[in-house]
Design a protein around this nucleic acid. Sequence first.
DNA 1: GATGAATGAGCATTCATTCAT
DNA 2: CATGAATGAATGCTCATTCAT
Lengths: 203, 203, 203, 203
Amino acid sequence: MTNEDLKTDKQKRLLDSGFKLFTENGIVNTSIQNIVDQAKMAKGTFYLYFKDKYELRDVLVARKSKKLFTDAIKSLKKNYIENFEDQIIYIINYVIDELTKNQLLLAFISKNLSWGVYHETLVKIYDKNEPDKDAFNELREMFLDGIKKNNIKIKNPDVTLFMIIELVSATAFNAITYKKPLSIEEYKPYLYSTIRLMLRNEN
Amino acid sequence: MTNEDLKTDKQKRLLDSGFKLFTENGIVNTSIQNIVDQAKMAKGTFYLYFKDKYELRDVLVARKSKKLFTDAIKSLKKNYIENFEDQIIYIINYVIDELTKNQLLLAFISKNLSWGVYHETLVKIYDKNEPDKDAFNELREMFLDGIKKNNIKIKNPDVTLFMIIELVSATAFNAITYKKPLSIEEYKPYLYSTIRLMLRNEN
Amino acid sequence: MTNEDLKTDKQKRLLDSGFKLFTENGIVNTSIQNIVDQAKMAKGTFYLYFKDKYELRDVLVARKSKKLFTDAIKSLKKNYIENFEDQIIYIINYVIDELTKNQLLLAFISKNLSWGVYHETLVKIYDKNEPDKDAFNELREMFLDGIKKNNIKIKNPDVTLFMIIELVSATAFNAITYKKPLSIEEYKPYLYSTIRLMLRNEN
Amino acid sequence: MTNEDLKTDKQKRLLDSGFKLFTENGIVNTSIQNIVDQAKMAKGTFYLYFKDKYELRDVLVARKSKKLFTDAIKSLKKNYIENFEDQIIYIINYVIDELTKNQLLLAFISKNLSWGVYHETLVKIYDKNEPDKDAFNELREMFLDGIKKNNIKIKNPDVTLFMIIELVSATAFNAITYKKPLSIEEYKPYLYSTIRLMLRNEN
DNA sequence: GATGAATGAGCATTCATTCAT
DNA sequence: CATGAATGAATGCTCATTCAT
């Protein structure tokens, strides 16, 4: 086993332990000691890989959400959906379904992504000077591409994408987690109908 | 001064001190000691009025957001706006402007309301079994009333209101705080256009 | 027992424990935990009285050295020594004898007073704008007074006092602790002879 | 390059790095990691050359102070000063000037030499059973030689030298660093006058 | 009710040292 | 010789909570 493998192994174990504990008990209630105990290594080792537990969280959020979008796009490509609106709905539906299946992941991402890292990350999407930095970028490329190819008239596609993402994030969390105002399955038709509307709004 | 007054006075001082310190330094960085120092009373006294600082926060969030909506509706009533859509936009615009003026309040409410108390609170709006409990209820009454009186065809008004509120909360925070994807003033036309669309969507 | 007494009691116990542990094991090897264990109280209590162990040390150095000089002057006054030079020698001899008897105190004061607090303290002696601040001041008053009354011609008495104090501190520590170059008793004649010389040097 | 050279090279780099970091940040605030980073080598390598950072410090203090005295004596020899007292003053003045120019060195030597290694080192000067061990010895030889050749009547030259060295160390540090009671230049006349007095004191 | 001294569990972080490679 | 990943003991400090007055 090479040094490089060892390093990756430890880091991976820390990420896994962190994710398990963060989702189960929350970040505030998870100590470095908990994490290294779970990962079966010494406390000091943690600091060889992460500055503190918040850096671990940030890496985790970035990886988990990147995977979510990557998987969604991968799945889309397998399904040869022609219509642009349908493609967008497909992606959103895929992500919603994944998060419904894994509600600990949903809680983790929602809590930490949205009001912490998320805005820093998301903000970069709209910042044209920092392209290709994260998971959302591929989505954005796809979105802009689709609009162009389909000759869709939207004044500011970035703003539309922004509104769609935020609307989905905020409302899906409520619907999945609290089934309020409706269960996610009941809510989907309203959401998708609204999104189609937004995609047709030339502003 | 009666004992009752004293109790109210102390409680008020704790709320004021808590709000000042929470907005300035964040909740995590505010200790009970900080709060009672600011409120000029003894540490033990805190526990006569609140279980812990999170209970203080919850009361604060409820009061501050209630005030925001109450003020908005009060202001609306002074302005005799006839059109229903315009009324909704007026309220949203009022709240956005208030939060733009007071960004510490915005950060406080966003951070604590949305992903903590907020969902518990908001959820109650859509829970018809718990009416008249909070600030959002008056808004909801007004909303449902307007739809009825104006003979607007919306399949599930609660869902529409839910989507509007969530969309505004999530996107306005970004726009005000980070000016991403646009500054709040640049963003407003897109937002209001989308809301009008949603109000016309019969689903 | 009043609150004031209680407070003094805890503080006193911390001072006593700190002195015992500092002299026995050194400051670096003494932890807050050690101190509170010795003082039989909780760790947090330490922080009610001192910022950290260095503040405890500073208070200790100030108190111990103040006591040394105060005792010396008190003893001098009981002995009605007429001659000024003899008075100075008496004081120095008193302090040297005390430190010889209590070498832990000597080590503690030498190590911490000289290269830490000491210079801040000592420096104030020579700073006429900050009088009456510490233990050395009474000595200085006495010294200046004696020079005046005895019509001794010294160009800058503060400089002379400074040199005497530093010479005594530095050399007595060596002589007492290491008996190098001579034991303190063998060394005393040389030291006192030199001091008498300095007191007669008009510069 | 032989292995021996390599060893010397690494050791030299460690000494240089240690000196830089000790003087800039203090010993307590300098970690082994800092030292090897600065020296551009691996952590484990440190332990091939030094037991710990205190051994590194001791070597450093010995080398730096040896150099100071060696340079002073070398400079003296170039200047053909006849008079013995003048020679002594010349040396002291040389050292004071060097330390005034390089106050980081002064602080480092004062802090570590005087109240740690120094006394162990200095003590050896007066210990006739351990001659030729360090930098002070050449000085001592010169001192004893001068006294003999000039037929100076001093009862115990080692004691006189001891007092002079200690007086200079202690007071010059204060004068240079804090300008108390006087700046070093103002203080010099008093100091040198006193030293001349001591050299004439037959005891 | 009001006080604030006392508590002590709890945690992040550092760092000297080891040792397999 | 040289490396540097891994270790885990050690410790300063915070702070919510209690309770005797």
